[in-house]
Amino acid sequence: MMLLPCPHCGPRNSSEFRYVGEGTARPDPGTATIGVWRDYLYTRSNPAGWTTENWFHRAGCRRYFTVERHTVSNAVRASHRPAAQARTTSDPEGLSAGTERGPDAGPG
């Protein structure tokens, strides 16, 4: 079981988290065609390589966050709060900025 670096709690067992999915931007339902909407719902790039994905720390801080993970090695090179959250000026819970860390690949 891989360790996943939560930006709030640090590296934790991945069983504490729920995998939300590959990060996809939600189209405006007022203007999106049904084809665009179904791409948003169902189409994923599923690369063998680096992917940006969302996780939820279910058994921890219960925060959603975004990681960049390599799907072959499970290395994680960045973990941060969701993009929309970082955009906002207000920070109601007083959370600090997300951490940036290298892949957990042992001493260099």
């Binding site: 729920r18 969302n54 959603y64 929309a84 959250q85 109601p92």
Partner: peptide, 13 residues
């Protein structure tokens, strides 16, 4: 979790 998702990721404001 569903509600938190909306509050945390789509509408944190």
């Amino acid at each position: 979790e569903w509600m938190e998702n909306w509050l945390q990721t789509e509408h944190p404001e």
